[in-house]
């Protein structure tokens, strides 16, 4: 059975972790926004601008971590635009989000064409290299999968813990969750719902952009159009699947990545000779829809998600 051979290979599990990494960043980013009460449909475009900005910065001579910082700042800039329009002005989060996605994607394409007018294939950068953690990376199967990844992957997993701690163990996290559940209670505490929500969207957008940057700076080493290819939308599904909790969202991202890695490998088996490759490529999108259906009954949506807050209004 090919499936068992695949499941028992270290390269498969390494791929799962690798595929999950950008999704973890972006899903955490979306989760932070939604927990504060703002749906951020800018995610797809913000991932694109992050992928472009980080890669471009490194191509122009910046260090890898400086590139990640540039990507994050670019994402935060578009996040600020989204936050300004949806929070104080209370505009439709659907329309603004799609507008931000379009604007960010177009900005990346425009800047790409402007800076590299002549090239037919995008130049490559020297991406993040796997960082083997001594001793544990020698464990069979688990070692290569978990402990010889790039620094960005370790950062993604560390962020899951960090975001959980902040959300559930700090006053800031409490205020953020309250802004998404019962904003009036936040104001009663003397805190500003506007400031909390805007901060959440800006920070969340920064994480989405790092998720995009992972694609150009760790997974692949160059930027091309259509590179994000719906990953942002998949992350929105993962937030729902994870019931708006970081730990469960991580589980969702890993599960999703496992199916994605499996479909790529199944294409190489005799099964791939019979079934058209497009069917395999549909798997991630179909799974996302199935995940939404599965969780629909139990979804614990933040009560004030997508409801603008206007001080003094009932």
């Amino acid at each position: 059975m090919e499936i068992f051979d695949i499941l028992l290979s270290a390269s498969f599990w390494a791929a799962v972790i690798r595929i999950a990494s950008p999704l973890i960043f972006a899903t955490l980013g979306e989760l932070i926004c939604e927990r504060a009460g703002v749906l951020n449909l800018g995610i797809e475009g913000i991932m694109v601008i992050g992928a472009f900005a980080g890669w471009m910065a490194v191509y122009l001579g910046a260090g890898l971590w400086a590139g990640v910082l540039v990507a994050m700042l670019a994402g935060m800039l578009f996040g600020l635009l989204h936050a300004t329009l949806t929070v104080p002005f209370g505009l439709s989060q659907h329309v603004v989000g799609l507008g931000v996605t379009l604007l960010a994607t177009a900005t990346a394409s425009f800047a790409y064409r402007l800076s590299l007018p002549e090239v037919t294939s995008p130049p490559k950068i020297e991406p993040f290299q796997p960082w083997e953690i001594p001793i544990v990376s020698d464990i069979p199967l688990l070692g290569p999968a978990l402990f010889s990844q790039t620094a960005l992957t370790y950062l993604a997993f560390a962020l899951v813990v960090a975001v959980s701690l902040v959300l559930y163990r700090t006053p800031l996290g409490l205020a953020l969750r309250a802004a998404g559940e019962n904003p009036a209670s936040v104001e009663a505490q003397g805190l500003s719902v506007t400031a909390i929500r805007m901060g959440a969207v800006v920070v969340g957008s920064g994480l989405m952009a790092i998720g995009g940057a992972f694609l150009t700076m760790s997974a692949f080493s160059s930027f091309f159009f259509e590179m994000v290819n719906g990953r942002g939308w998949i992350c929105i599904a993962l937030v729902v699947f994870g019931a708006w909790k970081p730990g469960k969202a991580l589980l969702g991202a890993l599960l999703f990545a496992a199916f994605d890695a499996l479909q790529v490998r199944l294409q190489q088996t005799p099964m791939g000779a019979v079934v058209p490759y497009q069917v395999f490529l549909m798997v991630p999108y179909v799974l996302s829809i199935l995940a939404l259906i599965l969780m629909s009954r139990r979804a614990e949506v933040p009560a004030a998600l997508m409801i603008p807050f206007n001080k003094g209004e009932r």
């Binding site: 719906g230 939308w233 599904a237 729902v240 939404l292 629909s296 009954r297 979804a299």
Partner: peptide, 12 residues
């Protein structure tokens, strides 16, 4: 089922 149509239509 109350499944959000934004994401499903996008994924379609």
């Amino acid at each position: 089922l109350g499944v959000d149509e934004v994401v499903t239509t996008l994924l379609f």
